[in-house]
Design a protein around this nucleic acid. Structure first.
Ligand SMILES: [Mn+2]
Ligand SMILES: [Mn+2]
Ligand SMILES: [Zn+2]
Ligand SMILES: [Zn+2]
Lengths: 152, 152
DNA sequence: TTATAGATGATACACTGTCTCATTATGATC
DNA sequence: GATCATAATGAGACAGTGTATCATCTATAA
């Protein structure tokens, strides 16, 4: 896929402003999780990051990884991508063209395809890949009214 | 939401033909899970069905519920709807207008909105609901090439 | 320095979804 | 209806995820 010209520091700023507006600090643990997430290729799970960060000289606990991932998610640095199995899957937004996922309900594998803005345009792409479409839905993510109110 | 004129027996036929083409039988347990799923209002989790079916005179085991739900999913009687937490959420397709879900990344609640076929049309609807959109993706589900080949 | 608030890690915990396997049901064939 | 092959079932064990707790550590401001 074609890459964006986004800068990593731009992503880092997302995190910083998120932390600031929530009274949180840019700690060393958070920084490591950020680096691991942003440095990943393709998709990753929380547990994968846990294992990865266990190998580093600077240890980060499982609790911190889970906590930090939630923050990165809300900050918009990463997004959740896979469903259907019991893992949370993520990918970073940086250096990725907007794309969608088509997921197999049997093996939970998925294929990626570029965001073409129009529903009907996607079908031929997927069918050419041998993917039998059973259905689709548009999945928006964000903050609901209740949570927004609760926060202020 | 406006209802379709779909018939329940039409949904039952979906299941029957799925079972037949997979060499499976329409057992009593499957029938009960089907009834419970089709009779549900809104969304439901696997565990909710398990509890529900425990109260009935005819018992159905947890294993059977999970197994049957996968079949109903593949048969197209139900679809998976919610993500982000560790539960599988389902809803039946019967008597439901095509719609999408917008999910809060904090509390995992979601709102539903009708399928209007066009991306940009959705945003004003969600924003009117107080939902702050952080992003979206089109989620297709189906059977991947590998799984289709493996099956034949 | 002291006080305050946030950050962390270890660990316990609840619960989901999967798997195994012995047993039972089903239904086709003779 | 007896026999046989195959599918279905239930009970329980199981691994693994994501959450919660809480005592301890750290950073920052006063
Ligand atoms: Mn992707
Ligand atoms: Mn719905
Ligand atoms: Zn597959
Ligand atoms: Zn919310």
């Amino acid at each position: 896929m074609i890459r964006h010209s986004h800068n990593i520091s731009e992503e880092h700023s997302k995190l910083e402003s998120y932390l600031q507006s929530n009274g949180l600090k840019l700690s060393f643990g958070r920084e490591l999780v950020f680096q691991a997430a942003i440095g990943s290729h393709g998709h990753f799970t929380a547990e994968e990051l846990v294992k990865l960060l266990k190998k580093q000289p600077q240890r980060v606990s499982r609790a911190t990884v889970y906590r930090s991932l939630k923050e990165l998610l809300e900050a918009g640095v990463i997004r959740e991508t896979a469903f259907g199995d019991k893992h949370h899957h993520f990918e970073h937004v940086y250096d990725e063209d907007p794309h969608h996922h088509a997921q197999c309900i049997r093996c939970h594998s998925f294929i990626e395809f570029p965001d073409l803005k129009e529903d009907t345009v996607y079908r031929p792409i997927l069918e050419k890949e041998g993917f039998k479409i059973l259905g689709h839905e548009m999945h928006f993510y964000g903050i609901c009214r209740k949570c927004r109110d609760r926060n202020s």
